[in-house]
Design a protein around this nucleic acid. Structure first.
Length: 466
RNA sequence: GGCGGCAUAGCCAAGUGGUAAGGCACGGGUCUGCAAAACCUUUACCCCCGGUUCGAAUCCGGGUGCCGCCUCCA
């Protein structure tokens, strides 16, 4: 079995073949850190974290790199507005990024390079492009000669001439061709800047990724990923820069996640209809956000609203209940050493199905459906009077293993109740024994006010937090 | 104008040739002192019109509608 990836470059699913056996070199375009990230920025972080986890689950050694754009026009503008300097703002929102995304279960990359820490490599890269005749300098600005790169437009499948007619932005007069894009921008008075062979300035947006990919992962990498809106022009320009420089493919597979929509319209900072992760986490459990995003395929657009999040939350609750049901019963079960290979086989079949779905372009939607099937199977098994430890353990192991690939924690840590609550539960048991249901129900209601939910099962009373 | 995507139940969402997964919601039932959890059960002319095929949600052609990209954007 092999992993298949939808490659934006070829517009089809392809079998993943790593450059180096057993290894994945992967680069994901990160945020510009001039504000808190919105949930649209969170989507690539989450889905490619899932991709990374799956590769690891399948035994690959993943080298995962994701950048921070910590100097650019938006940061300079934000600095001016806030009366702070660029590094201060960048630092603050990088910290916030790790907090937000960490809450969403996204693991740290192996490297998180920043533009300001990659300046030497960026300048070298631009120099190389000038030497090779792919770039030129005008009054301290440096531009890439787009038309000199033969395959320009191959990722977005645009012909270079069609692009020209579509240009809506006012063209800077000094460009030789309107399609040329900036590699280096001359500093305006008072702006943050770095020394370069072309005078004081800062890098253009696209060059950082080319330089970072080369520095951290090499000339050709396995997977380059990001949001769909980056495919043009950002990724197109990266390809032009890198491939002009090395003469080799920049990445073998290009992956793009779909947008998040609000009321069926793309959410973006420019439209102003964005939801900050920072804010939404005050309202929803972070794992619900993650679960919701992975319930759809990563390439599909998803809508975001309260109704959808709440229903995802209920679904997640169902999975957690199944795991709790298993855990609870495990405590009550002795191993009778009975042969239960039939159930074990059923569980293994679900696991295989999960792998098959994930192999198919990381279909987490179907993989999660398998988790629901597994939950159903577990609950059916739990209806039997005599359960077996081996089977319960097998269920739990499988749940934990597969949920971890999705990045979810289904079992909740064991905790003890304080004595007062224990006493109340005891009193209620007494009341029930004496058929004093009024008192029993009152105690149950009181406990509910303390966010303790009681459930009476054939094996006894159990509780959980609301 | 150029390029691309999408249209599946009340809502969300898989499914790219073999007769429609899964979740949420709703109704009916079982279990329960009552609940909860759980199980069983009901609910789809797959946007429209043609075509190819023994067979189409799936492939092809033509519509309709929505969305995105065409140098701020994840």
């Amino acid at each position: 079995m092999a992993i298949k990836i939808y490659n934006t470059l070829t517009r089809q699913k392809e079998i993943f073949k790593p450059i180096e056996e057993g290894k994945v070199k992967m680069y994901v375009c990160g945020p510009t850190v001039y504000n808190y990230i919105h949930i649209g920025n969170a989507r690539p972080a989450i889905v490619f974290d899932m991709v990374r986890r799956y590769f690891e689950y399948r035994g690959y050694d993943v080298n995962y790199v994701s950048n921070f754009t910590d100097v650019d026009d938006k940061l300079i503008k934000a600095a001016k507005e806030l009366g702070e300097d660029v590094p201060t703002i960048a630092e603050r929102f990088i910290k916030a990024y790790f907090e937000d995304v960490g809450a969403l279960g996204v693991r740290s990359a192996d490297a998180h390079p920043r533009v300001t820490e990659t300046m030497t490599e960026i300048i070298e890269f631009i120099n190389g492009l000038i030497e090779k005749g792919f770039a030129y300098e005008v009054n301290g600005d440096v531009y890439f000669s787009t038309r000199k790169f033969e395959n320009y437009g191959k990722l977005s499948q645009q012909s270079i001439d069609a692009l020209q007619s579509g240009a809506r932005i006012e063209v800077e007069q000094q460009k030789v061709d309107p399609l040329d894009f900036a590699l280096w921008k001359v500093a305006k008075p008072g702006e943050i800047s770095w020394d370069s062979p072309w005078g004081k300035g800062r890098p253009g947006w696209h060059i950082e990724c080319s330089a970072m990919v080369k520095k951290y992962l090499g000339e050709t990498i396995d997977i380059h990923a990001g949001g769909q809106d980056l495919s043009f022009p950002h990724h197109e320009n990266e390809i032009a820069q890198s491939e002009a420089m090395t003469g080799k493919a920049m990445a073998n597979y290009w992956m793009h996640n779909g947008y998040i929509n609000i009321d069926n319209e793309k959410m973006s900072k420019s439209l102003g209809n964005f939801i900050l992760v920072h804010d939404i986490l005050k309202k929803y459990d972070p794992e619900i956000i993650r679960f919701f995003m992975l319930m759809a395929h990563y390439r599909s657009p998803i809508n975001f609203n309260d109704e959808l999040l709440n229903s995802a939350g209920t679904g997640l609750e169902r999975l957690k209940n199944a795991v709790q049901n298993l855990e609870y019963r495990l405590e009550e079960t002795a191993d009778l050493g009975k042969n239960e290979s039939e159930w074990v086989a059923k569980i293994d079949a679900e696991k295989e199905k999960f792998i098959r779905e994930m192999d198919d372009d990381f279909n987490s939607a179907n993989a999660i459906a398998v988790l629901f099937d597994l939950a159903k199977l577990a609950n059916v098994y739990l209806r039997e009077d005599h359960t077996q430890k081996v089977v319960l353990q097998k269920f739990l192991e499988t749940f934990n293993e597969l949920a971890d690939v999705i990045g979810l924690q289904l079992s909740s840590p064991k905790e003890l109740l304080d004595e007062e609550i224990e006493k109340l539960i005891e009193q209620r048991n007494e009341a029930r024994k004496n058929k004093d249901f009024a008192l029993a129900d009152k105690i149950r209601d009181d406990l509910k006010d303390m966010n303790i939910i009681l459930e009476d099962t054939p094996q006894g009373v159990r509780w959980k937090r609301e």
